[in-house]
């Protein structure tokens, strides 16, 4: 056997070990989800008797789903989550892209410099510092809590710094000034230049911001729990928390509720995982 052949065999063996390891780690990683999936099709007595069995002694059942859906008001909370996430994400993108445009192109203006510096500095403030005053100002003073619109605007306010920072980088390094000058000569004003020339060129960054923010809004718990008090406008995380508080003893129902809460984003991930992984990586590395 030549040296090369030996090396090739060693490499193959290394690959085999690596794949075996990865498969083992991967199974360990998804065991919690698998446990939820196998238990969601059992009734409560079977789960209590043996949570590890694939099928319960009383057989396969799907009765947990309709009951959990009804008690959690699933379609309604799903709709709320969808509305809040979509509106917040779109608004964040529009508002931050516009702000970053004027900041990049007029960095010397005092207002731009101050706003941008404040935004960067504000990114280190944890939510815990702002939650009491937020509730006190908007709940106590103005009484505008418990509305979807308030929550959407707050979501935008919290994510605008990070998004502006990312658009700032994109405009700064990827949009040539000559394009804007050409647009100016062709008769565009700044507003038209932004919407017709700059904004369409920001597509990759828009995708990144959309993915990161939409995931954050969809899963956010603390802010919505402070803003939304009316059951009719609960989002999925709030509804899950409320559901667990009421039905924690009926473990079959809890399994169904948890699976329902996870399902929408898992289904989305199935189709968009390439973009989500790329977006999250871009966001983390640049941010």
């Amino acid at each position: 056997m030549t040296k090369n052949e030996k090396a090739a065999i060693a490499r193959k063996r290394k690959h085999a070990i690596m794949i075996a390891l990865l498969i083992i780690v991967f199974i360990l990683f998804i065991i919690p989800f698998l446990l939820v999936i196998i238990n969601v099709f059992k009734d409560q007595a079977d789960i209590t008797a043996n949570p590890l069995a694939l099928i319960g002694a009383h057989g396969f059942t799907t009765k947990n789903f309709p009951e959990a859906m009804k008690k959690m008001d699933f379609f309604n909370v799903f709709k709320n989550s969808l509305i809040i996430t979509t509106c917040s994400t779109i608004l964040t993108i529009i508002v931050s892209a516009m702000a970053s445009f004027v900041i990049v192109r007029n960095g010397k203006w005092k207002a731009c410099a101050i706003l941008f510096a404040l935004m960067i500095a504000s990114m280190v403030i944890p939510f815990q510092v702002l939650m009491v005053p937020l509730v006190s100002v908007y709940g106590g003073l103005f009484g505008i809590l418990n509305s979807r619109i308030t929550l959407i605007l707050m979501h935008v306010g919290f994510s605008v710094s990070m998004a502006t920072f990312m658009f700032h980088g994109a405009i700064h390094s990827n949009i040539p000034l000559e394009l804007e000058e050409a647009a100016l000569i062709d008769g565009c004003n700044r507003w038209q230049t932004f919407w017709k020339i700059v904004f369409p060129l920001l597509k990759p960054t828009i995708a990144t911001v959309a993915i990161i923010d939409a995931m954050a809004f969809w899963n956010d718990y603390l802010l919505p729990s402070l803003v939304l008090t009316d059951k009719a406008i609960y989002t999925i995380p709030i509804a899950t928390q409320a559901f667990y508080g009421t039905y924690s003893t009926d473990i079959g129902l809890v399994m169904a509720a948890l699976l329902l809460a996870m399902l929408p984003i898992l289904i989305l991930y199935l189709f968009l995982q390439k973009y989500i992984v790329a977006g999250v990586t871009a966001g983390a590395v640049k941010g």
Partner: peptide, 24 residues
């Protein structure tokens, strides 16, 4: 120009972060 482009961001940012921070 500043208000046209950065106005909405400025208002939301101040209302949600700056004002609560100072009020806090």
């Amino acid at each position: 120009q500043f208000l046209m482009f950065a106005g909405p961001a400025l208002i939301l940012f101040c209302m949600v972060i700056i004002v609560p921070f100072i009020y806090g």
